[in-house]
Simulated assay, not measured.
Amino acid sequence: MLTDLAGPDAGIQAAEIHPSSIVAEGARIGRGVRIGPWCMIGPDVRIGDGTQLIANVIVDGQTQIGPGVTCYPFTTIGMAPQDLKYRGEATRCVIGARTVIRENVTIHRGTATGSGVTQVGDDCLIMANSHVAHDCTIGNGVIIVNNVVMGGHVTISDHARIMGSAALHQFVRIGRAALVGGVCGVEADVIPYGSVLGNRARLVGLHWIWLKRNGVQPDEIHRLRRAFRALYPRAMEDETSAFSQRLDAVRAEYGNEPRVAEILAFIEAPSHRGLVRVAGGGTASIETDGV
């Protein structure tokens, strides 16, 4: 994730560092890095080539920031987690290439009782005042809009969209390219390409806009729609079959469709939180032992 990092002396010489900023001895700073006024960089930090810390940015702990990242004022990255069990263990924080982190964002490092690392992927946009908690994993190309908060251990897969002021419960999984509406409280998992809305998130359909904008052909979209309606009947009008039976039927008819197969694999994977319920009062939960 870091490219051609120079050693401490050569890296600092190759970087542009404002005299008011403090870069601790031992920090590794890539070439072409720009560190603006009043920043603080800890001794175990690694910053990739061409990254820019505009001003008043704090980076601490065993934190690795990839190349081409932009951090706006008053962001903090790699600070200790807000977990009462944390005792100063050497956990990590990793930020991918070309990610943009806007004002007042906080991204905490992992915990020894979790995965030990908080990770944000490449080409993400995390907007102002959002919080990425300990042991969260965010994929590539994710957009997190203003004021989003998440508990620890949340997983957000590639290209998901989390709209403003959403709140994600700890251990929730958000599937690939899913859409979480604004001011949603998300207490359970959201399937890949799923779209959820409401004060307490409810599944209302698939993320059709993302599918169309990313080159998914109309015939595949039609098959996805049919599979989704078979799995989640409208407003759960059809309660004559159990969810497990509908899973089997969809697998038999549409299981060769890669995106349908991805949704089915997500549903059947181990989960701490179960699945988001369907709008209209029905449930999309699947009964599995011990998950």
Rank of each mutant, 00 (worst) to 15 (best):
V149R: 09
A178H: 04
N199M: 06
R234G: 02
R273D: 08
I65P: 02
V291E: 10
V23C: 02
R273I: 05
Q13F: 07
Y193W: 14
G36Q: 12
A166D: 01
D83S: 11
V180M: 05
A265S: 12
V154H: 02
G30F: 05
L211Q: 13
V100A: 09
E16Q: 13
E187N: 10
N56R: 14
I209P: 09
K85R: 15
L2V: 15
D49V: 01
A15G: 01
G139R: 01
L84N: 12
M163T: 11
D9E: 14
S285F: 00
V196A: 09
V23N: 04
A188Q: 15
T76M: 14
T51F: 04
G26V: 07
D248P: 02
T75A: 14
I54V: 14
Y254H: 15
I22A: 08
I12N: 08
N129P: 04
C136P: 08
G48D: 02
A6N: 09
Q64K: 07
I54W: 11
A80Y: 02
D289H: 08
G78L: 09
C71V: 15
F243S: 00
G116K: 08
V59C: 03
A80P: 10
H207C: 12
I47W: 02
C184H: 08
S21V: 03
F228C: 01
G185C: 00
V172K: 05
F266K: 03
